[in-house]
Measured scan of single mutants.
Amino acid sequence: GKMTGIVKWFNADKGFGFITPDDGSKDVFVHFSAIQNDGYKSLDEGQKVSFTIESGAKGPAAGNVTSL
């Protein structure tokens, strides 16, 4: 299901970062391709987001990332 969290950091040049889930679980990798907006796909440190957990090739990653 949907989770919420805070963006820990995001490197716009490399197109990835990490989200710290509100439930205290392990930080989740986020790739820019998972960001659900029409414009420039980037996130800001400290931004609140909702997301799902998808299993990627390198382990769990955030999917369906939407800013709240």
Score class of each variant (00 low, 15 high):
Val49Pro: 00
Phe10His: 01
Ala57Ser: 14
Val65Asp: 01
Thr52Ala: 06
Lys8Thr: 11
Ser42Leu: 10
Ser42Glu: 09
Asn37Arg: 06
Ala12Val: 14
Trp9Thr: 03
Thr4Gln: 07
Asn37Gly: 13
Phe32Cys: 05
Tyr40Ile: 14
Tyr40Gly: 09
Ala12Cys: 04
Ile19Lys: 00
Ala12Met: 13
Lys48Ala: 11
Ala57Gln: 15
Lys14Asp: 05
Ile6Asp: 03
Gly15Val: 02
Gln36Glu: 10
Ser42Cys: 05
Gln47Val: 07
Gly15Trp: 02
Glu45Leu: 13
Asn11Thr: 05
Thr66Ser: 10
Lys41Thr: 11
Glu45Asn: 11
Ala12Asp: 09
Gly46Cys: 04
Ile6Phe: 11
Trp9Gln: 03
Lys2Pro: 14
Ala57Pro: 13
Gly56Arg: 04
Phe16Glu: 03
Ile19Asn: 00
Lys26Tyr: 09
Pro60Thr: 08
Lys41Gly: 09
Val65Tyr: 01
Asn37Ser: 09
Phe51Val: 01
Asn37Gln: 13
Ala62His: 01
Lys26Pro: 13
Val30Asn: 00
Gly1Cys: 05
Asn37Lys: 10
Ser67Met: 13
Lys48Asp: 04
Val30Gln: 00
Gly63Gln: 10
Gly63Asp: 10
Gly59Ala: 06
Leu68Lys: 06
Asp23Asn: 14
Glu45Arg: 14
Gly56Val: 06
Lys26Ser: 13
Thr4Pro: 03
Trp9Lys: 04
Val7Asp: 00
Lys58Val: 08
Thr66Asp: 07
Ser50Trp: 06
Asp22Ile: 10
Tyr40Val: 11
Asp22Tyr: 09
Asp23Gly: 11
Ala12Lys: 15
Asp27Leu: 09
Asp38Leu: 11
Ile6Val: 15
Lys2Arg: 10
Glu54Thr: 13
Thr4Glu: 08
Ile35Asn: 03
Ile6Trp: 11
Lys8Arg: 10
Ala12Tyr: 09
Gly5Ile: 00
Asn11Met: 07
Lys58Gly: 15
His31Cys: 03
Gly24Leu: 07
Gly24Lys: 07
Ser67Val: 13
Ile6Leu: 09
Phe10Ser: 02
Pro60Asp: 07
Gly46Gln: 06
Ser25Asp: 08
Ser25Ile: 07
Phe29Gly: 02
Gly63Ile: 14
Phe16Asp: 01
Thr66Trp: 10
Ser25Gln: 09
Leu43Met: 06
Ala57Val: 11
Pro21Gln: 04
Leu68Asn: 13
Phe16Asn: 02
Phe51Ser: 00
Gly63Met: 12
Asp22Ala: 12
Ile19Cys: 01
Ser67Trp: 12
Gly15Cys: 03
Lys58Ala: 13
Ser55Phe: 15
Gln36Trp: 09
Phe29Pro: 03
Val49Tyr: 02
Lys26Asn: 13
Gly17Trp: 01
Ser67Gly: 13
Lys26Thr: 11
Val65His: 01
Thr4Val: 14
Asn11Ile: 06
Asn64Gln: 10
Asn11Tyr: 11
Asp23Ser: 11
Leu43Pro: 02
Lys48Ser: 09
Lys14His: 11
Gly1Gln: 08
Lys41Gln: 11
Phe32Met: 13
Lys8Gln: 04
Lys8Cys: 04
Thr20Ile: 12
Ser55Glu: 14
Val7Gln: 00
Gly46Arg: 06
Ala12Asn: 14
Gly15Ser: 03
Val30Arg: 00
Lys48Gln: 09
Lys41Met: 08
Ile53Met: 11
Met3Thr: 14
Lys2Gln: 10
Phe32Lys: 08
Gly63His: 14
Ile19Thr: 00
Lys26Cys: 04
Ser55Met: 11
Val28Gln: 02
Gly39Arg: 11
Phe51Tyr: 11
Asp38Cys: 05
Asn37Ile: 14
Asn11Gln: 10
Val28His: 02
Pro21Cys: 04
Phe51Gln: 00
Ile6Lys: 14
Phe10Gly: 01
Gln47Gly: 10
Pro60Trp: 10
Ser50Arg: 06
Ala57Tyr: 14
Ser50Lys: 10
Leu68Ala: 10
Ser67Cys: 05
Val65Ile: 06
Thr4Leu: 13
Gly56His: 13
Ile35Tyr: 05
Asp23Glu: 12
Thr66Pro: 01
Ser55Leu: 15
Gly46Ala: 04
Gly63Tyr: 10
Gly17Leu: 01
Asn64Ala: 08
Ser42Pro: 06
Gln47Asp: 09
Tyr40Trp: 14
Phe29Ile: 04
Ser33His: 09
Thr20Gln: 12
Lys58Cys: 05
Gly63Ser: 15
Ser25Pro: 05
Ser42Thr: 15
Ile6Gln: 08
Gly56Asn: 14
Thr4Ala: 07
Ser33Pro: 03
Asp23Trp: 06
Lys58Asp: 11
Val49Lys: 00
Asp23Val: 09
Asp13Gln: 15
Asp27Phe: 03
Gly1Phe: 10
Leu68Ser: 07
Val7Cys: 04
His31Lys: 03
Ser25Phe: 08
Thr20Phe: 08
Val30Ser: 01
Gly63Cys: 05
Ile35His: 03
Thr66Lys: 09
Asn64Ile: 07
Gly5Asp: 00
Tyr40Asp: 15
Lys58Leu: 15
Pro60Ala: 08
Glu54Phe: 09
Ser50Phe: 06
Glu54Arg: 07
Ile19His: 00
Gly24Thr: 04
Asp22Cys: 05
Asp22Pro: 03
Ser42Met: 15
Ser33Tyr: 06
Phe10Tyr: 12
Gly39Pro: 15
Phe18Pro: 00
Asn37Trp: 10
Pro60Leu: 10
Phe29Asn: 02
Gln36Ser: 07
Pro60Ser: 10
Ala12Ile: 15
Thr52Ser: 15
Lys48Ile: 10
Phe10Glu: 00
Pro60Gln: 12
Phe10Asn: 01
Met3Ala: 08
Tyr40Glu: 11
Thr4Asp: 05
Thr66Phe: 07
Phe32Ala: 11
Val49Glu: 00
Asn37Val: 14
Thr20Lys: 13
Lys8Gly: 03
Val49Phe: 01
Asp22Leu: 09
Gln36Phe: 09
Lys2Tyr: 09
Ile6Met: 09
Thr66Tyr: 09
Gly15Gln: 04
Lys58Gln: 12
Val30Lys: 00
Met3Ser: 11
His31Pro: 04
Ala62Pro: 01
Val49Gly: 00
Lys2Met: 12
Gly39Cys: 04
Lys26Ile: 13
Gly46Thr: 03
Ala57Trp: 13
Phe10Val: 04
Thr52Leu: 12
Gly15Ile: 02
Lys48Asn: 10
Glu45Val: 08
His31Arg: 04
Thr20Ser: 11
His31Gly: 04
Gly24Gln: 12
Gly39Leu: 09
Gly5Glu: 00
Gly17Cys: 01
Val49Asp: 00
Asn64Asp: 14
Gly59Val: 05
Val49Gln: 00
Asp23Cys: 05
Gln47Pro: 01
Thr66Asn: 12
Phe51Glu: 00
Gln47Arg: 07
Ile53Asp: 02
Asp27His: 06
Phe29Tyr: 12
Ile6Pro: 01
Leu43Lys: 01
Asn37His: 12
Val65Ala: 02
Thr66Cys: 05
Ser25His: 07
Gly59Leu: 11
Pro21Met: 06
Gly56Cys: 04
Ser67Tyr: 15
Gly24His: 10
Thr52Arg: 06
Ile19Tyr: 00
Gly59Pro: 06
Asp27Trp: 04
Lys8Met: 05
Gly5Ala: 02
Ser42Asp: 06
Trp9Asp: 02
Phe32His: 13
Gly24Asn: 08
Met3Asn: 09
Ala34Arg: 06
Val65Gly: 01
Ala61Ile: 14
Val28Tyr: 06
Ser25Leu: 12
